[in-house]
Design a protein around this nucleic acid. Structure first.
Ligand code: MN
Ligand code: MN
Ligand code: MN
Ligand code: MN
Lengths: 220, 220
DNA sequence: TTTGATTTTTTGATTACTCAAAATTATGAA
DNA sequence: TTCATAATTTTGAGTAATCAAAAAATCAAA
């Protein structure tokens, strides 16, 4: 049985692989993402490599093996189903479920997760718009534009928020930018690093490019 | 923050203190209850003692300190609320929630447990009839008779099952002896180690004294 | 009260995870 | 190409939890 730490590392590597362009995830990136010392990540990566869960190229980085990917996706499934459960059944706010899910993902049994999946009607998206992997490990791919590269002055619906940090989600929530809400991008100014939006919910809002790129949308 | 192991030891000591008559719980009893080697329990007991969570008398045993009791009761509250939640909201069977609760009790946040408590209407008993400690740490005491010492040929209602072992609960369930059900004790034979019952649900049943003593009842 | 059995503690190790700081390797600008 | 900088790995160490087996203490008969 994988330990909690191993599950967290695998999930982290999976997520870094997704957004990063190159094939290999450097150990330093893992260390930063998990808030551990660089040497700690290196040590764990060796353990994972010895267990056949990653392919490790010293001084380059790691890549999940097939076994590692399977495990990571399973953890991610539990995480996202738990998040949705906390929102829909428990009534927690979508912007504050991540921390709880990060602990519960290691404690829920297969039996329990199957019941939750059933209760929620086999959902495909979590409260942040992230895809929920299927029980067999399939993750739906999607390529929504974000607020930096989508069309200007065109109605869009928020599809996904790709940053789970509580502070960021609270900001997003404060500006009425929760998934499902409608908006259009009024203008962008690269020099000022500003994206001006018109949100159906909260009126005019201005975001930096960094923040704007984390909000994925779907044209209507 | 206490580790998962420490929470499990404290909960265990609390439970052993409840049923055992003497004041001190021997380390060997803890080791047996938690399925660890005797030396492991001794080592942990010293750690707990150093943290001021128990009073430790070498070669005699331990007793929870006030701080230890408070923590233990908190864990127990989480455990029992989670059990009831799994039965009432998730729809799991009362005889199979213990294992899940034993892991979830370390992963649910105060926020989440407060919501669960609210959803369930501030319940006082878990699915096994065990009292749920209040948020402030008060545990309702009750002294129900059991099937060994209750009146003969008198209608009773099952109040509590004081053994969480899955095999035992499945047996109890199979004989229709779930909390709330009605029965009367027909006869007892000490030499044959047999207690004969008439259950409203499952007709005539025979139990050994050991098993019968774990089923607490309330005269009607 | 002696002694044999039982219980508990001690000892010596192991696994898992972590850090700080030193050593090494890679990278990119001059 | 060379060298300073940055990233990575190695080293040495510590905490937490565990076990097997030896040693010590307690208990219960005889
Ligand atoms: Mn986690
Ligand atoms: Mn999510
Ligand atoms: Mn537990
Ligand atoms: Mn219970």
């Amino acid at each position: 049985m994988p330990t909690i730490a191993i599950e967290d590392y695998l999930k982290c590597i999976y997520l870094e692989e997704q957004q990063g362009k190159k094939g290999l995830v450097p150990t330093g990136q893992i260390a930063t993402a998990l808030s551990v010392a660089p040497g700690t990540a290196t040590a764990m990566v060796k353990t994972l490599s010895d267990s056949g869960l990653v392919h490790y190229e010293p001084y380059s980085g790691v890549q999940l093996s097939e076994a590692g990917r399977k495990l990571a996706v399973h953890v991610l499934r539990r995480h996202r189903l738990v998040e949705l459960f906390l929102v829909q059944v428990i009534g927690m706010d979508w912007s504050e479920v991540h921390e709880d899910a990060d602990r519960l993902e290691h404690a829920v049994s297969d039996r329990l997760i199957a019941r939750i999946d059933e209760m929620l009607g086999h959902p495909t998206l979590d409260p942040h718009g992230d895809p929920i992997p299927t029980a067999s490990g399939v993750v739906a791919e999607s390529n929504h534009p974000n607020l930096v590269n989508c069309d200007l002055e065109r109605p869009h619906q928020i599809a996904r928020i790709t940053d789970q940090a509580a502070e960021f989600l609270r900001l997003v929530e404060r500006h009425g930018l929760r998934p499902g809400n409608r908006l259009s991008v009024l203008s962008r100014d690269e020099h000022a690093d500003a994206v001006r939006l018109l949100s159906k919910d909260a009126g005019e809002v201005s975001l930096g490019f960094r923040a704007a790129s984390k909000i994925l949308v779907q044209p209507l």
